[in-house]
């Protein structure tokens, strides 16, 4: 069955609210407005204002409130409109949610789910186009997810709610209208493993969130040239699934990481380091990466396109790797 990413999120949220009275959704404009990405239309009428809770413009306050509610026995899903505004709530996520269990010697777990949109590509300029997933993936105590497929949009929320510790979910804003085939596998969505979306023997394209479809696009182009690219969707940014990454790289002996974050201090850099540590002798070429240009994401369409990782850049990186052999 084909559904959109948005519809998959709706089904997941509906199921969660119907299944557990402790679950509630809180955030700016999740209720009356219907969600800033029009994901929650109709939810307020069905579940009421207590459980589809519009919050004032207080990212620090309401994210901290969700964390407290989780400590108090609820299962809050707190929505921050976008990662850009999550910087105002970073304190509560990093200094409270992530540390409470360890710092209390195991006494207080924080079963909160924090979801937010991320990424550029819509000409919204620098303050609305950040990709800061790596900031969160840096923090022990958090689990960080990047659903890139309708299967994960449908399945990951259930797994996140079942997890007794804080989970942060990033939804790339370009994905909401994307259509995809919902496979029966969606129910198996876990919070641990990466997934091979396309098998190939010549190179592994490692991507997550918004860059997964770009990697797939690149793989199609490469296939036309006779180059078989494997596409690996990280899915989970913390903890990284080293085993799946190394197994794939071990087979293809080459890897290109496609990451919408800026290169410096990026997740791509972390993955490269792990491949160095764990699979150096399997490689036929240095690992490459395609990241965002190190500038604030500009407004003008051609400039924004030039700043973000695109399929042609991935194709070019792969050609270069193969040429080096």
């Amino acid at each position: 069955m084909k559904i959109t990413y948005r519809e998959a999120l709706r089904q997941a949220m509906h199921e969660a609210l119907a299944a557990d009275p402790r679950v509630f959704l809180m955030g700016e404009d999740v209720g009356r407005y219907g969600g800033s990405y029009a994901v929650w239309k109709g939810f307020l009428a069905e579940f009421g204002p207590e459980r589809i809770r519009d919050a004032p413009l207080s990212e620090l306050g309401f994210v901290g409130t969700a964390i407290g509610a989780a400590l108090g026995g609820m299962r809050p899903i707190v929505e921050i409109m976008t990662v850009n505004f999550s910087l105002l709530a970073l304190d509560q996520i990093v200094n409270t949610a992530a540390v409470y269990r360890h710092m209390s010697g195991g006494q207080f777990s924080v079963p909160v789910v924090v979801r937010m949109a991320t990424g550029g590509g819509r000409q919204l300029a620098a303050q609305h186009s950040h990709s800061l997933e790596n900031w969160y993936a840096h923090v022990p105590g958090l689990t960080v997810l990047a659903p890139a497929t309708v299967d994960d949009a449908r399945g990951m929320l259930r797994a996140a709610l079942a997890d007794p510790d804080p989970v942060v979910i990033f939804e790339h804003a370009m994905l909401y209208p994307m259509e995809g085939e919902l496979s029966p596998d969606w129910e198996k969505a876990d919070l641990r493993t990466a997934k091979i979306l396309r098998a190939g023997r010549d190179v592994t394209l490692i991507a997550y969130g918004g860059t997964v479809c770009k990697a797939q696009e690149a793989a199609l182009q490469l296939a036309a040239e006779g180059i078989e690219a494997e596409v690996l969707d990280l899915r989970v940014l913390r903890p990284l699934d080293d085993a799946t990454i190394m197994a794939s790289v071990g087979r293809t002996r080459r890897a290109v990481i496609v990451d919408e974050g800026w290169r410096t201090g990026s997740l791509a850099g972390e993955i490269m380091a792990r491949i160095m540590e764990q699979a150096f002798y399997e490689l036929d070429a240095p690992v490459a990466r395609v990241c965002s240009a190190e500038v604030p994401i500009p407004y003008a369409k051609h400039m924004e396109e030039a700043a973000l990782p695109q399929a042609p850049a991935v194709v070019a990186a792969v050609r270069q790797l193969l040429a080096k052999v």
């Binding site: 409130t65 964390i67 407290g68 400590l71 200094n95």
Partner: peptide, 17 residues
Amino acid sequence: GGGLPLAVGLALAEQMQ
């Protein structure tokens, strides 16, 4: 100030329950 939002959340959980 870090404990204040947390306390609000504990209170919210109490009210909802």
